[in-house]
Design a protein around this nucleic acid. Structure first.
Lengths: 209, 209
DNA sequence: GTCTATAAGGAGATAGAC
DNA sequence: GTCTATCTCCTTATAGAC
């Protein structure tokens, strides 16, 4: 890269935010890991918040672009009629999960999980995920025509929760090194679970029993 | 209560951990909210970690006991044969979700979500949730006899992720900001989604397309 | 049991040399 | 662009009066 120090800071921040959480990781720890000093992060990113935004721009936005590319391809294959729920889950989850299997890049996937998990209400989140979310809600409605738009939003939310917890939870099969489950298997299990959930019958109007 | 200050500290900590996250909330902010001083928390709980453990004992453990009571009742109703997946999701999620609708107790539900989500060390988590998790894995296998025990663990994990994300980010930007937060409706939608996921066909062995 | 006061160190941010 | 040194505020934790 043109700017090795800047890249080293981004890489170290990514790794530490992903492993320990964003709120629990200090700039000092990141700079020590990056082999640079406190002043460098302020020179390159202005502040801790600026660093976090740079990380999102570098990782979350490309993942969302990939999701929309995959969704475009699905909609091209199903110009009318019902879209398979499996395809929707795959288009949404594969771009975020596919780096988990590579020890060199697994922290990229986990960072995405941390960001979504820890900062669900921020304006930056809406800016980055808003368009993607709206597109996927429309797709979910075409996969499950029996549900309302409100319920499609809720089901997208459930799918995101399932994926994010899988990306970040310490005892997750994808994060616990003692459980040798490979990424492809986890993705297929996630697709089996979440696609059945997306296409499920409508929720009962009140307590059913 | 016998010890108003201790209770006030627990209440304030619960509220602030739930709303802002555990790692992001300082003892100082908690003591200010509780109207007490820094020394009190060390007198009553020894340390920040001790306070967190007291919170877990007060809230997470009773929720798990309630889950197991409900699961016992279900197993009594289905001494042999298949257990409905809806019943399992309801037994697991209702005790954690039921306080969301009450503004006075909503933070109790959210705290449980935060604790599971941030999972500071897996040892305490295993101690508190281990027994409950094993019982529910057995129940999931009786609701979905076609899946392996390993896959039952993964599906329990997915269900937990769906619930926890709902508890902690009920107004996530991935959802319509105007979406309903009526607790009973959310619970029924969660049951519809997760029970379909629990009972879903086996995951594909490899990429299906 | 609860307080004040303070220790001892970590946090993010900045000035200015090179 | 990167460094050292430092500022100011905040953190958990403790000692000791009452």
């Amino acid at each position: 890269m043109n700017d090795p120090t800047k890249e080293r800071i981004l890489d170290a921040a990514e790794r530490m935010f992903a492993e320990n959480g964003v709120a629990a990781t200090s700039l000092r720890a990141i700079m020590k890991e990056a082999g640079a000093n406190m002043a460098a992060v302020h020179y390159h990113f202005g502040s801790r918040e600026g660093l976090l935004e740079a990380l999102m721009a570098r990782r979350a936005e490309p993942v969302n672009r990939r999701r929309l590319e995959l969704l475009d391809a699905i909609e091209q294959r199903h110009l009318r009629g019902v879209i398979p729920a499996e395809d929707i889950v795959r288009a949404f989850c594969a771009p975020a999960l596919e780096m988990l299997g590579d020890p060199q890049r697994r922290h990229v996937s986990r960072l995405i999980g941390r960001i979504v998990m820890e900062a669900p209400d921020s304006a930056a989140m809406t800016r980055i995920f808003g368009t993607t979310a709206r597109r996927f809600v429309s797709a979910i409605q075409r996969a499950a025509p029996h549900i309302t738009e409100d319920e499609a939003w809720v089901r997208l939310h459930f799918m995101v929760g399932t994926m994010v917890f899988t990306l970040t939870a310490p005892r997750s099969p994808v994060c616990d090194p003692s459980m040798s489950v490979d990424t492809q298997t986890v993705l297929e299990q996630l697709i089996a679970f979440a696609s059945a959930g997306l296409a499920a019958p409508c929720a009962a109007e009140s307590g059913k029993e």
